[in-house]
Design a protein around this nucleic acid. Sequence first.
DNA 1: AAGTGGTCTAGACCACGGC
DNA 2: CCGTGGTCTAGACCACTTG
Lengths: 240, 240
Amino acid sequence: MLKYVEIENEIRKRIKNGYYAIGEHLPDQNQMAKEFKTTRVTVQKALKNLINEDLIYSQRGSGTYVKANAKYASKFDFGVDQYVGTTQFLGRNHKITSKIIKFKIRYPNADEKERLNLKKNDLVYDIKRLRIVDDEPYAFEYTKMPVNIIPGIDESVLKKSIYGYINQTLNKKIGAAYRIISANKPNQDDQKYLECKKDDPVLLVNQVVFLKDGIPFEYSETHHPYNKGKITVYVSGNNR
Amino acid sequence: MLKYVEIENEIRKRIKNGYYAIGEHLPDQNQMAKEFKTTRVTVQKALKNLINEDLIYSQRGSGTYVKANAKYASKFDFGVDQYVGTTQFLGRNHKITSKIIKFKIRYPNADEKERLNLKKNDLVYDIKRLRIVDDEPYAFEYTKMPVNIIPGIDESVLKKSIYGYINQTLNKKIGAAYRIISANKPNQDDQKYLECKKDDPVLLVNQVVFLKDGIPFEYSETHHPYNKGKITVYVSGNNR
DNA sequence: AAGTGGTCTAGACCACGGC
DNA sequence: CCGTGGTCTAGACCACTTG
């Protein structure tokens, strides 16, 4: 086990069980280095990670303190910013299925070319899926993906999870996502498949998703009925 | 100037002007240490920061590479996740004013007590504001703040920017925010002040905002007309 | 002035990827 | 196997906060 991870875990434990109380400062870095039989640099590495997790914060000249919302933040360690794929988002206590409304391979339009950074003659999948959770319509997805980046998608993949296929079968790692969230009136598909009435609002998530190396592989728009989809975002204040 | 910041800036520059091409690997850490007349640890610190910025990524045994979406990501350095306060969000090219609809000090209800972590006898501001941008209604805000954390709010503050007051006058630093985004039908206030029709959707942002030390200081709900408010989120894929 | 965190050095060994 | 990034040490000096 890595030393700085051990230190992280120990400090996390002490915060959770109240040994380091909220608002109180932790022992200073020299003391910690002694306790864990290591050097200050290693202690600092552990602390840096905990700062990024929003559990603690440091003030030069003063000390390192437990944040008042430490427990609040840790509650959302999982479950926030986890919009990546419906399947992962909802977890395993739900029955998730898909109805494929459209599945084609074609040339991209100008917008898709731009967003997915495609060259001439590159093809895209053009997918429309209704996502069904516990036998109720949950979301309607318009998805475009480059065929050369994500090869081999077929109906059996679409019925399960595209993200599972990318991770496990293609062994590619998913990276950042850029999203635009908005509200809108329901379109024809929403009314037909999501069973929206004409005055039922729809929550829209427009997103470009990238692989670890920064190559965009998904450009999609997801529609949620207004009473079903909510999006949670936790923005850490550590962005300098 | 700090050495690792110098290195960061230099690498950032080289990525931007194409000296380090997308997908290519950077010189290895030993070479960089030599070039910048420093040690590997310092080079690593600079690289770590650039990784957090989503400009590059490292692979043990292989090298450090420029991400394909490096420019994409850097485009959103500012402007994304910057929802913190309408004033900051929109920048200076707009005329922003407020109409105060309600301003009271009262005891909190159970929900507010919970979210703002209040004790008995703690008071809250209860604020309703219409935010107006370039002479058009832009958002309707329901805001609750603890009086003891943010003392001294009055109408003159409300007409400008609460966040400006907290930063500059109270000299407190704003930290993380937890948000829930959803869509809904317009309520009475939306129809009256935002000029929504009965079938115009509304975009809702429910948020708790914390100070740097983790103390919650704002619990609010903001309503945007569906054709005005859009929320952008950039989720970095570096969360281990 | 004393104590804190932030930066930096000059080494060392290890883990992993690709040839 | 070699070259890469990841971790770690034992020091040092500096910047800042607080009494």
